[in-house]
Design a protein around this nucleic acid. Structure first.
Lengths: 239, 239
DNA sequence: CGCTATTGTCGCACTTTGAGACAATAATAA
DNA sequence: TTATTATTGTCTCAAAGTGCGACAATAGCG
């Protein structure tokens, strides 16, 4: 989908996305930096006047990561009246040679609908948008100071992800199509922030019926070669 | 808090609330009916330009139920572009002798942030607002046809409530301050839509540490008199 | 005063979970 | 080629949790 023309957005409404990736060791999220400003924030955007909210978020995600079919979940809408800094927004716009009238909604308060996404860290080439210098991965415990209430948004995203991890088994969305049980367990441990029992984890994962076992991997790793697994999409679940 | 003056709301933004109550037998929700129109909808409202989103919802809830300290939880934001009916909104406004210009945001699309509330059915005296004839309790399986996507909102509210029931033990918010174990179990069964094992339920509730047992009730009921319980607020939990 | 339905609790079987033990095995070193 | 070593897949066992029924206690009723 195409982005709407510049001023054809719903006023006072934005979305922010917490994009999770797993580096192999750590859980990370995408953070963007505005031009010239040293200000860091979550990637977000606006909703076109005729655009579904969910579509707007997918559009922004696709623009920044190149990925189209992504696990995405809305988790909270932040609506406090004081969650904006007109001076900050003004500076960001000025740094990009954008001028808006002083009573424009861009300089007023925002409601922001927050989403989190789970993506395969390795297939992403982060692309900055028009307003930002860079967009990069940051480990959760090494985040730069974020604008507005974005740190609160990140905390809540992680909290929701942890809760959903138990009831939806979404961890495999952070991995490449083929992965080992150990890699999957590392993902879970990174999300939950605690060690898990190896045998129990394996048992539960296999019992879930969501994994399909492939042949052995031979390559590389010393010691016994592990199986590889594939995430079985819901359409092909076993009854 | 006072309601803002008529035209001082954030455009294109609304909230809807699914207010749950428990009649003793059934789970019910509050539904309002617009003046003259036979149209039913969830109680909702708008957000003042300088008002926190959560405060706006509490304000609306307080106006309609008279209750101030209510269990309230945001669960989803509905943002599809087609979730509005300009003709319907126009008719509602006309039936109340309200005139807005044809390009007013009230006749355009809405983003709606949805909340559910759990309240003590018996302490509520539903009060219609300026736009509605009536506001009444309806059992979940006897709802009238609702406007817009409000039926979808109700379904999702119930789904979220069921999920949260397990992890937060919120059922007691639907009961008066003192209640018996059987009443509490009835609440859970009404929410989940299934029978629960009596002894397991009792065991788990007592183990949660959220209930404080009082003396026997003597009054009324034939057969052995049950204990009464009180919901222990978080501040007084046992460690 | 006995009958009956309901309550609080216990016991039992079954399932789930955590922790360790075991053999199998693939790369490395001898 | 063979021994070593770390890792994997599976198993066993104990601990904890859960569903289900049994039991005595008890309050109202006839």
């Amino acid at each position: 989908m195409q982005a709407p023309p510049p001023d054809d957005y719903l006023p006072h409404l934005a979305y922010d996305s917490v994009v999770f990736g797993f580096s192999g060791e750590q859980l990370k999220i995408l953070i963007m930096e505005y031009h010239q400003t040293k200000w860091f924030a979550l990637p977000g955007g606006f909703v076109g006047r005729d655009e579904n909210l969910n579509d707007a978020v997918r559009r922004g995600l696709s623009e920044r990561t190149g990925l189209d079919d992504v696990y995405l979940e809305q988790f909270y809408t932040f609506g406090d009246a004081d969650r904006f800094r007109p001076a900050v927004m003004d500076a960001i716009l000025k740094a990009n040679d954008l001028v808006v009238p002083p009573d424009h909604w861009l300089l007023d308060r925002f409601i922001s609908v927050a989403y989190y996404a789970l993506i395969d860290y390795n297939t992403v080439v982060p692309r900055p948008d028009a307003l930002s210098d860079s967009i990069n991965w940051y480990a959760l415990d090494e985040l730069p100071p974020l604008l507005f209430d974005h740190e609160k948004i990140v905390r809540r995203a992680l909290q929701t992800l942890r809760e959903n991890l138990g009831k939806k088994l979404v961890g495999m969305n952070l991995l490449p199509p083929l992965f080992t049980m150990k890699e999957l367990q590392r993902v879970y441990e990174a999300i939950l922030g605690e060690k898990l029992s190896r045998s129990s984890f394996q048992r539960k994962m296999l019992a879930s019926g969501l994994l399909e076992r492939r042949e052995k991997r031979l390559l590389g790793g010393a010691h016994k070669a592990p199986y590889q697994y594939r995430f079985r999409r819901e359409s092909e679940e076993i009854g």
